[in-house]
């Protein structure tokens, strides 16, 4: 498939041309950073705004989803046919990997999530290669390469005054069919951008050694040791590209109600609170253990994929500088010493 050329000056017009039949979700300026959001008519996506605040999962798997509505004895299932199909435009590689991880759970697992499936299968995804890593990024530790990204339909690679749009699937080819072919000069610039990115990568975190070290661990004094200042807020899990745990509640006002599925966070006490009032997971260490083991042990075992993509958002948003990179290092050391002893 031939690489195409998308000039920066023509992005708004190009996106606009896709819009009549699609809803476009793209990074937009947000309080000094950027966030993925539905692009309003004629708006320019913020493709140079760095890593968006929250991951792209929200577009496919919203924080709150209505499953059905009811009114005093009558039930109306919600339609799973989404509105116009989505185009996720300008998705970073870490988020692409995150969508892959969500797919394993919500699409390819024992239970298929009908809402996610309808949205996911209709969506086209346009990746966006980063020019450089943010200080908190460590996607390279997971073998993620924005210039050879995980599954997406088109990948945009920066090339000076333009992006080289490389279609990777038939859906992607159709999407960028209207664009001109990329010329040799721009292809060379794009290649250079890739080289520059790889030359300035952040140091890697020893993920493989860690996955091996925690493979069979549950009870260990090591968990207490990494709690540090964690205050058990849910910031890290809500910005995470792979966290997918949810809560289901019936919201009612008077005789009318709806059942909704909403994101939940393993960092909160309520997450494991039983009806009886018993809570099996009470300490910050137990909750952190859950978060780490879910990402690096359970998902590895059950979905054959890691639940971390190294996007570094949890590191960036943490109010008390709880750094998963640091925790991985310390845990690997402690757990391997403990297993030798």
């Amino acid at each position: 498939m031939n690489p195409k050329l998308l000039r920066k000056t023509e992005i708004a017009a190009f996106v606009q041309s896709l819009a009549p039949s699609h809803t476009i979700v793209a990074p937009q300026p947000d309080e000094g950073q950027c966030s993925y959001g539905v692009l309003s008519n004629g708006a320019q996506p913020a493709l140079d705004g760095g890593r968006p605040r929250k991951s792209a999962k929200e577009a496919l798997y919203p924080q709150k989803e209505r499953m059905f509505a009811f009114e005093a004895g009558a039930v109306e299932p919600c339609s799973v046919e989404p509105e116009p199909p989505l185009i996720l435009f300008g998705v970073r590689a870490c988020d692409l990997k995150g969508i892959e991880a969500l797919d394993t759970v919500l699409l390819h697992g024992a239970f298929v999530d009908a809402f996610y499936k309808a949205r996911r299968e209709a969506a086209a995804i346009v990746g966006l290669a980063c020019e450089k890593m943010c200080p908190t990024c460590f996607c390279n530790s997971f073998g993620i390469d924005p210039y050879a990204p995980p599954a997406c339909d088109v990948n945009l690679v920066p090339a000076g005054d333009a992006f080289v749009a490389q279609p990777l699937t038939e859906k992607g080819e159709a999407l960028v069919a209207s664009l001109p072919d990329a010329d040799a000069a721009h292809l060379a610039t794009a290649r250079k951008a890739g080289e520059a990115f790889h030359a300035a990568e952040n140091p890697k975190v020893a993920v493989d050694a860690f996955v091996e070290a925690v493979a069979e661990v549950f009870e260990s004094p090591a968990w207490e040791g990494i709690v540090d200042g964690c205050i058990n807020c849910g910031g890290c899990t809500y910005v995470c590209p792979t966290c997918h745990c949810f809560d289901i509640v019936d919201e009612t006002i008077g005789h009318r109600g709806q059942r909704v599925r909403a994101w939940d966070t393993c960092m909160a006490a309520r997450f494991t609170l039983h009806t009886s009032g018993h809570n099996p997971r009470v300490t910050p260490a137990q909750r952190l253990r859950q978060r780490i083991l879910h990402k690096f042990q359970y998902m590895k075992k059950n979905q054959s994929i890691l639940g971390c993509t190294g996007c570094g958002r949890c590191v960036a948003v943490c109010p008390v500088n709880w750094d998963i990179r640091d925790a991985i290092g310390r845990l690997t050391e402690e757990l391997s010493t403990a297993s030798k002893a």
């Binding site: 209505r66 509505a69 005093a72 004895g73 009558a74 039930v75 109306e76 919201e251 009318r256 109600g257």
Partner: peptide, 18 residues
């Protein structure tokens, strides 16, 4: 205001007393 949209009355699955 928290909104709980009205269920569409067509195609309702009736169950229980109204």
């Amino acid at each position: 205001v928290k909104r709980i949209p009205e269920p569409l009355l067509a195609g309702l699955e009736q169950g229980g007393a109204r």
